[in-house]
Design a protein around this nucleic acid. Structure first.
Length: 586
DNA sequence: AAAAAAC
């Protein structure tokens, strides 16, 4: 075996790798084959995953330059890069307005070559078939490369995962593991070692964490960086064993990460890069304590020392204020959409009484082509089960996803929906954010959500890959609280507004002191830097900063057609779901 | 009141 190890240092032959990597991750295989999925990384080919093996892996990473690519592995390369994700072709979208605000904002790039991202990253960009950076990447990459903190307001599907993974990994490759590696080595020789990831990415749902992890595997190909993912509902023993093989970049949902920290499996002492994806959700009432537990009440480097990045399609002012606790002198980035005439999501709101919803839904579904995907959102888990059951009895191939289903069932449902085997997915909020499902033609809000951010994220599941999207919402007198915000959204997106909705909004405004918004979101969810408003700036201690001190890029496209009423007194920005853009080029 | 997120 020793001989095998020595030989293996020269990396496995394609044949070895093939033999040792039997199970690809298709469908819901990930849950079952968690270990195999990671063993697929060629470093681990041929090893069962005991402590001794992971020592070998660790030591092999130890020496040498982290900036130099490790040898190719064709089997793995094929697995990582041949997927349906065909890269981003952005050539038609130079006119998307982006605004960067904050002190001394680094200049944006126009091409991946404009910055020294290093050999490994450039290779993986090529393998991913990315030709040019998307707008959020043009701005975020140099900001992150120059170690500035960042709050970025950009639609999912705009290439934001790569916008943080590329520069973070690039820097890890350039700078090497530093102290993190020594800490891991001192920790004990016989397995069960605490891992000290250099970068941590937190996401609000398990499926989203998985999706980010998949991207991380691509961009860490041929490097010494080993990405891992941990989330609830799956076997913790397998996740621990996977961590013990080495973990330099960790993607996690908060609860399972806290568990791992308390079990002594993860130490954040050397975690220099922190990303909160869907940051406004991560900082809302349900998640905030766990985020503070992870970021503030443990061993993570303080803000200003570590580097913190937040991404979301919505950023309510209240959340921006809260976010200051984690950020140091950050840049705020607002990424807009192509000119106001090219909305590719048609938003419809129809009045449907509760008792008529099912038959109305059947009408909609019968008018839908068989090969297009329809995502039906409901408010409750019970409602999701009941509706799935109903549709099933009506003869529709449908499935459902919600938090009371087993993790295995959740991943299976998502996979059947993605593949078109079940072209109708009934879902709760768990599927509203971040999931990249191509070819969703129709989003139906069977039940409207109670806050507008949720609405924005939900309808953003359609209109991707240049397809036209349709979003239909059932509205009745239970939805009074969202009336005003919905009206604003429809207006900004130049959508048809039913006259009854308009008069309802007017009535509601005079009935309700908070205009239907919860206190927490009283400031608007806007796509703008709250520091730029007089009130926000003063309240937040950022008084006296002029607008757009970053100095560049800001004025471009703003106040013009591109952002519509981006700077209305409400602070509602041009970054709603209709800002969903044909990022792929046709 | 309900969703999500650890066991």
């Amino acid at each position: 075996r020793g001989l095998h190890i020595k030989n293996a240092v020269g990396w496995n032959t394609a044949k070895d790798a093939y033999n040792n990597f039997g199970s690809n991750r298709g469908k819901s295989a990930f849950f079952n084959d968690r270990g195999n999925a990671n063993r697929g990384r060629f470093e681990h080919g041929g090893f069962g995953g005991g402590g001794g093996n992971s020592r070998w892996v660790e030591e092999s990473r130890d020496d040498g330059d982290w900036s130099k690519p490790t040898p190719r592995n064709e089997r793995l390369e094929h697995e990582l890069f041949s997927g349906s994700n065909t890269g981003i072709n952005f050539e038609r979208y130079d006119d998307i307005p982006v605004e960067a605000t904050g002190h001394n904002c680094p200049h944006h790039i126009e091409s991946f070559q404009d910055l020294d991202l290093g050999e490994i990253i450039m290779g993986n960009i090529a393998l991913s078939r990315y030709t040019r950076p998307t707008p959020v990447q043009k701005y975020a990459i140099p900001i992150i490369k120059s170690k500035r903190d960042l709050m970025a307001c950009a639609q999912t599907g705009s290439g934001k995962t790569a916008a943080f993974l590329l520069p973070i990994l690039s820097q890890i490759y350039t700078e090497g593991p530093g102290e993190a590696l020594n800490a891991a080595k001192e920790n004990g020789k016989y397995g069960r070692r605490k891992q000290f990831p250099i970068s941590l990415i937190l996401a609000p749902t398990r499926e989203l964490a998985l999706q980010i992890y998949d991207e991380a595997r691509k961009f860490s190909y041929r490097s010494k960086v080993r990405p891992c993912v941990v989330y609830g509902g799956a076997d913790i023993g397998q996740q621990i064993r996977d961590l013990e093989r080495g973990c330099h970049l960790l993607v996690a949902t908060p609860g399972r990460l806290v568990d791992m920290m308390e079990r002594g499996k993860i130490g954040l002492d050397y975690c220099n890069y922190l990303v909160l994806d869907e940051a406004d959700r991560m900082l809302d009432m349900g998640f905030e304590p766990q985020i503070r537990r992870i970021v503030e009440q443990d061993t993570m480097p303080h803000k200003g020392i570590r580097h913190t990045m937040m991404f979301s399609a919505t950023f309510p002012k209240e959340i921006q204020i809260l976010a200051r606790d984690f950020l140091e002198d950050y840049i705020f980035l607002a990424v807009g959409r192509v000119g106001s005439t090219s909305e590719n999501i048609t938003q419809k709101v129809v009045w449907v009484e509760e008792s008529d919803k099912r038959s109305f839904l059947l009408d909609l579904l019968s008018a839908t082509g068989k090969d297009s995907l329809t995502l039906v959102f409901v408010e409750t888990k019970k409602g999701a089960d009941a509706l799935e059951d109903f549709l099933y009895r009506e003869g529709y191939a449908c499935t459902s996803i919600h938090g009371d289903r087993s993790q295995r069932d959740r991943e299976e449902a998502l996979s059947q929906f993605r593949s078109g085997k079940c072209p109708i997915l009934v879902a709760t909020a768990v599927a509203a954010r971040g999931l990249d499902i191509s070819n969703v033609k129709h989003v139906i809000n069977f039940d409207l959500p109670s806050d507008i951010e949720e609405y924005v994220h939900r309808i953003g599941r359609t209109g991707r890959v240049g397809n036209l999207g349709l979003a239909t919402s059932f509205f009745n007198d239970k939805n009074g609280n969202i009336t005003k915000d919905l009206l604003d959204i429809l207006g900004e997106a130049k959508q048809e507004i039913p006259s009854w909705l308009e008069s309802l909004a007017y009535e509601h405004q005079h009935k309700s002191s908070t205009r239907g918004r919860s206190k927490r979101f009283a400031g608007g969810f806007g796509a703008r830097d709250y520091r730029q408003t007089a009130a926000g700036g003063n309240a937040g201690g950022f008084a006296g900063r002029g607008r757009n001190q970053g100095g560049h890029g800001g004025a471009r496209g703003f106040g013009g057609g591109g952002f519509g009423n981006f700077y209305t007194s409400d602070g509602y920005g041009g970054n709603y779901s209709h800002s969903q853009v044909d990022w792929w080029g046709n």
